[in-house]
Design a binder for these strands. Sequence first.
DNA 1: GTGCTGCGTTAACATACGTTGAAGCCGACA
DNA 2: TGTCGGCTTCAACGTATGTTAACGCAGCAC
Lengths: 246, 246
Amino acid sequence: MSNPLTMKLEQGAELQASDRARLETVVAQTRKVAPREDLIREGEIPENVRLVLDGFACRYKVLPDGKRSIVAFLLPGDFCDLHVAILGSMDHAICALTPCTIVEIPRSTIDDLTQNFPRITRALWWATLVDEGILREWLVSMGQRPSDKQLAHLICELLLRMQVVGRATENSFFLPLTQEELGDTLGISTVHVNRVLQQLREDGLIKLQGRTVTIPDVEKFKQFAEFNPNYLHLRDTKDIPVSDAG
Amino acid sequence: MSNPLTMKLEQGAELQASDRARLETVVAQTRKVAPREDLIREGEIPENVRLVLDGFACRYKVLPDGKRSIVAFLLPGDFCDLHVAILGSMDHAICALTPCTIVEIPRSTIDDLTQNFPRITRALWWATLVDEGILREWLVSMGQRPSDKQLAHLICELLLRMQVVGRATENSFFLPLTQEELGDTLGISTVHVNRVLQQLREDGLIKLQGRTVTIPDVEKFKQFAEFNPNYLHLRDTKDIPVSDAG
DNA sequence: GTGCTGCGTTAACATACGTTGAAGCCGACA
DNA sequence: TGTCGGCTTCAACGTATGTTAACGCAGCAC
């Protein structure tokens, strides 16, 4: 199986063998980050471009009163800061939620990609635009959906995104988030996250074993969540390869 | 005074005379759109790139139960769909909220810009990244801020963005939104929008004359809203020219 | 084993916000 | 000038969600 970056970018462009080979070298040099460690802090101006190759990280902001808001999850294959060079400094921070494997990509490599690999360039564009689509959908969820559907919707999204990078079976994946982290994402309290989770379990919509989520009836679950995957702009949902182990 | 597109892009790159001249021609051919008219519908694959030159429009999604969620405002100088070509189809719709003046830009023009005008290209990048920053900040607002501060925060943002394109004085601008539209943006009911607006007025934080918002004490207001403009990635807030009439 | 520490779970109570429905306002238009 | 439709305002009441605080439990350090 190829690396998660390649797997993801396949969704954004018709990559060819040369593209895949180049991406393989991009992803060669890795380093580890411990959970709760910040990959990037607000205000920083990162030198290199960073990429999550394994693990679970998040973008977040902290308000003056100490409340934390998680505004994105970074799964394997997701970039941390592909474009900060243009913006100057980070307007938010990124934190590892689990042990993460990170790739540091020199800016020169990105320049090489954008100048000599048009299909990869297109795929990188695609990735940032999908990120924007996800933000819009989260905004819809947060504003208009009751918290149970909001949580269900998030789980649907993560299932699909994990499948794209080969980290989920057809109906289950490892979701290493605490209830507090879920609350900071959905904009609800931990107590309420707990209530909602229990309701979903009671209704048989999800099962939790340890931190593995299993969805007994995916179609039913998607319907409950009113989940429409169009905002992820995937090639064809049915073609996504599925890993054999959760 | 130059056109709002140029004024905005000045914030994203050091434009030169040749850039400004080129942008002037880009923006030459306009057409009018009536309020409530969709500029683009969900699922569409637009041929040209569209730009709002005057008026107020919004990105929105509608849920199965009919609820509408407004996920962005498009002010003069904002692009509707700079990059949909890469994504395929629109995952949301765009609607004029007031009478709008629109520019239709052929894709070939965009290609010309990105190939021959590096500073403009950089500025276009900057603009899309700022849009992403705004989405993140809205998410934070919606998740963590009480609705009065959320509304105040939105007003702060719009004040600044309107100033950038010369459509606001130091402390006031024309805000042509109904309370229903505000509600669909903030994720609260119209009745509650009304409550919050009245509270803000009662506290002397804002004044409304017709649809013109005036902020008696901008510093105090920003503090109340916990507004930090860093996510807009503007050059220097103090250098923004201000129009003489509201 | 003992005692932290982080996380999940519960309960009782408080409140911000939603819903419904009616009244008033105001500009557009005949 | 009058009527109409869209918008704002208001009141009464319902509820989803927040807050606080306590307890249990597993993993880990010692």
